[in-house]
Design a binder for these strands. Structure first.
Lengths: 255, 255
DNA sequence: AAACAATGTGCATAAATGTGCATTTTTTTG
DNA sequence: CAAAAAAATGCACATTTATGCACATTGTTT
């Protein structure tokens, strides 16, 4: 990402600031392959124009935060990021991925590798919004009526659309997990969609933080025979793990 | 790529700028096999016509397409909110609204009235994300391949989907506005989608902040005969207003 | 047909701008 | 309070730009 236009670089930085994103001088210098002096001059100029606030080590946007969606509040973000990091390692170049609704899959967006020729599909509005910040990743969005509880499209048109796809690897969002029976969803439409998604996918991955094992949901999605891999946190209890293994789940632990 | 017509070269450069592409003086000189002086003269002339921004080493497009959607949505929010407030007053109960891509329409989300039985449709990821915070409003999301520059779906499937709808009131996002010619978009796909959206809608509204009148874009969407109402800021210059009125635009000023 | 103005082009020089480095000053952190 | 990191400052260097001028090409006039 090195354009020959110096002011273009300044515009890119200004754009990130305008998007509410804080910037670090050293990172920008490495990214644009210029010295930190040049970056500092840019930030100084932007601050003089009133387009950011200069701080030690970088610059902050004037109107802070705001951009992320309703899922920012969760302090589980660190846990989910660890799961996502582990899940991303299994991704192969050129794959068509599907990220189902769910805040855990949202964390996966930031863990997706670059320059692998990946294509991402999703039915989740929040995940699509997050993927807009990864413009190098081609994004296919499933349309339809948005279920406000789910935060994405799980209606008949979405089922039909996903049924016409051949997905290499899908990440199912689980509302609840039970060791004996598998994956569960909160709403009927969501469960129906997830089953269609599973049917269209070769590799079927589930990311689950601890809380999912304690949760309950009304509609069954799939048993462990239908799930290729269940990725859990490293501090999952041994009892749960043996129960899962006994039920036939292919589990892996994120470090 | 060496054509003997000097004007042709300038048009090619202007076309790239209008498409949102930055140009480097030295590269253009090599491409057209002329000296950098000639290129500089071209760029100077284009900048004087307001068709680009001259920078050290080349020129940058005036079009907002260069800035990602995430950056555009947080700039000039106060101005856009005023426009949105005014536009919301015209909405009738029970209508099916369509909010086209665009940061100005994003501000409209917070201005939509409650308990009016409205239904909202959009092809914009960010607008859909914002509407998740208004769960009482039924939301229909158009799917397809997401254009990262546009921030939403403007491909053939989106055109097809919108063509099958009967929309009561649509809010078109304008990348640029010209008093004599109407509404312009930055990319061909976006312009095509907007035309399909206009064709499917009864009331066709355009919200435009001041900057849109100074911007340039490459692809024509509609002239003023195709726009029901153009909502502008209260401090739009009288010259612009008379030019718009003379061209047949139905303008209204937000307070 | 010849002369003319108009325009675009390329090359010179001088001015302006951006960059990187060395040094000093300021801020943060332990 | 001391050490480390970051920022400001001054300066040398390279690149880009503006300006004036000579030259070629084109279209028009006489």
């Amino acid at each position: 990402m090195q354009n020959d236009l110096p002011l273009a670089r300044r515009d890119v930085i200004a754009g990130r600031l305008a998007a509410g994103q804080p910037v670090v001088a050293a990172e920008l210098a490495a990214e644009f392959t210029v010295s930190e002096d040049a970056i500092r001059r840019d930030l100084r100029a932007l601050a003089a124009e009133g387009r950011c606030r200069r701080v030690y080590g970088g610059a902050l946007p004037l109107s802070p935060a705001a951009m992320p969606m309703s899922a920012r509040m969760h302090s589980d973000m660190a846990r989910k990021a660890a799961l996502a990091e582990h899940a991303a390692q299994g991704i192969q170049p050129g794959e068509l991925l599907f990220l189902d609704n769910g805040s855990t899959n949202l964390a996966l967006v930031d863990a997706l590798p670059e320059d692998q020729g990946l294509t991402i599909a999703t039915n989740s509005v929040d995940i699509a919004a997050a993927l807009l910040r990864r413009p190098e990743l081609p994004l296919i969005l499933l349309g339809g009526a948005v279920d406000p509880l789910v935060g994405g499209c799980v209606d008949a048109s979405a089922v039909q659309a996903v049924s016409r796809m051949r997905i290499d690897r899908c990440f199912i969002g689980a509302c609840a997990i039970e060791a004996t029976s598998g994956v569960w969803a909160s709403t009927l439409a969501d469960a129906t969609f997830k089953r269609a998604l599973l049917a269209a996918s070769r590799q079927r991955i589930v990311l689950a933080i601890q809380a999912k094992l304690a949760a309950r949901a009304a509609h069954h999605v799939a048993d462990w025979a239908g799930i290729s891999q269940l990725i859990l946190e490293h501090d999952t209890s041994p009892e749960q793990l043996t129960a899962l293994a006994h039920a036939g789940a292919q589990t892996r632990l994120a470090s």
